[in-house]
Design a protein around this nucleic acid. Structure first.
Lengths: 191, 191
DNA sequence: AAATATAATGAACATGTGTACAATAAAATT
DNA sequence: AATTTTATTGTACACATGTTCATTATATTT
């Protein structure tokens, strides 16, 4: 009774229908009704699984964001958490975003709720926090640190935001260089 | 025929009704129908002025964001655009946000479209860009600069985001100090 | 295979959305 | 003050939302 086949079938149908509709129209204009029509799922059934169309998208996005986390982690792994030794070629996040450009275009769309942005934000921030905890003494950790973390996290997301505005035309490799340059100017965690 | 009194009356009624409803419930749950009922405005009339409830809020918020811009400008004015001489007491943005906390709580709510965030972002970024243009040679300006601007702009907004998560409990004066400390670590525009 | 559990369906209901249009009311213009 | 202009109203319509509940279908368990 763990994975009822009927439930699996229903959710797969809905997810598949959503991806199909996203090829045709923006997420914000997709209604529960048409999603159910296409998926051949009763609307009442939909509501027993999801609150709204966003929830279908969010569950799918969570898988992608997990991949984002891994991409973000990469330079930390490569440098053995000596992040000051980072090299441009180690950066994977921009390649990741480019790979899932269709999704990030939705995430950064002005009509879309902040919720997805926060999903990214939390992912980056929690990883940054962990890696900072390793390299910092407990005594130096303060309320200041929380703000510094959010400052730095959001700065990184600012690059993605700008990329989005440039319609993802800048090559990922160029963004890698930009990030390295910025990081060499801004080194908040040094000393 | 510039300012038809009927139009003014209608828009004032709707704005007043919105502020009234916001005392009771989140923006996302306010419907056009109930807004019109409270404002005693025909629903058809509503649609001849606004696309949706968000548009009523957005127009109101634009006034507040203009005040935000002035608050952001303050240290630049006080230092005569020698921003490296900034002192904690010159910073006004956090006082501004605290003053309009009720609105910023909405802007940063996870259910709210990114559009309002972009309103803030664009305000900060365009000002930063102007003030940077003054202190920079034309030749040093490049695509890199666009990314650096978005990086720095979003970093500042990261502080507001963290403040929101801390439910605005941190005193504004403490945030001033945090910002000064961070800026003294991060000085991307020096030299 | 039969019994049991439960997910999915279909129908209904009150309310909201977005649009259209003729009738009315209230402005601005003369 | 009379005329013209136009904003607002009332009504209607097709469709969407979110919920409820009895019925049916299809899993899982025995």
């Amino acid at each position: 009774m763990k994975h009822d086949l009927r439930v699996v079938k229903t959710q797969e149908s809905l997810r598949h229908a959503l991806l199909e509709l996203l090829k045709q129209k923006p997420l914000e204009s997709i209604t529960v009704a048409e999603l159910c029509r296409l998926a051949k799922i009763n609307r009442g059934t939909f509501y027993s699984h999801y609150k709204d169309v966003h929830e279908v998208f969010r569950r799918y996005l969570e898988v992608i964001v997990e991949d984002f986390r891994k991409a973000y982690e990469e330079p930390y792994r490569k440098t053995g958490f000596k992040i000051e030794n980072i090299k441009s070629g180690m950066i994977q996040i921009f390649h990741h975003v480019k790979k899932y450009q269709d999704f990030y275009q939705i995430v950064f769309d002005k009509r879309i709720p902040l919720m997805y942005y926060y999903l990214l934000f939390d992912t980056v921030r929690s990883f940054m926090k962990e890696s900072l905890a390793q390299s910092l003494l407990d005594s130096t950790y303060s309320a200041q640190t929380e703000y510094l973390l959010s400052y730095q996290t959001n700065a990184i997301l600012g690059l993605l935001l700008e990329w989005h505005r440039q319609e993802y035309n800048t090559p990922a490799t160029e963004l890698n260089e930009h990030l390295i340059t910025i990081l060499s100017l801004n080194s908040p965690f040094r000393g």
